[in-house]
Amino acid sequence: MELTVEALSFQPSSGNWADCAESLEEWNEAYRRVESYFSALRVENKLLLSSLVFKILGIASERLGKEPGRLPVELAAEETDRLLVSWFRRFLVGSEVEPIDRLSARGRLALLLVDTKVPWQHLFLTDEPVPEEVVNAMRTAYLRADPDFRFVEMRPRPIDLGIVAVANRTFESMGIWKTAVQWLLWIGFGLLLAANFFLTR
């Protein structure tokens, strides 16, 4: 189902937004924020995107009348979040008790996973009934980062190092083996030079 131009509502619920110069920039910021978020959600249908932005800005405008201390961008972002979460609630099982942020993440994940399987953009955030196919796809969408766990204990088998183990224990028991080895190496190097010198006379 494609979005029709008729379906778009360009009429804000309240007409007082962007009617003076100082609030214009604030509403522009709100507009950009909402548009950016839907772009980030890969809403590719520009008509749909514009319609959603207008719808949300309209509701935000209404709220601004009741909450004059707030900024348009805050209200618009909150409305976007609210609309999104309530839309996800229509599909996701157990959504009534789930905290909003978790529900939102689960919904976004479901949208991502069904993206290649069923078209959803024309239904996005609308009040229209959603086909069973989409609902099922959303409900069963599950990201498998890995197969089910089937834990197995692995235990290292000891390796008998033979003569090396005896040597190592001896060095360890000296407690200063590292220093001793360093000294021995330097002494050995010196002796090597000295021996070489005398032996080649």
Binding site: Y37, A40, L41, R42, A105, R106, R108, L109, L111, L112, L143, A145, D146
Partner: peptide, 17 residues
Amino acid sequence: VLDPFLNAVHVSLLRRN
């Protein structure tokens, strides 16, 4: 932080891990 999908995937991976 910003990408709605990557954020959801990241959280899902964290939860799984």
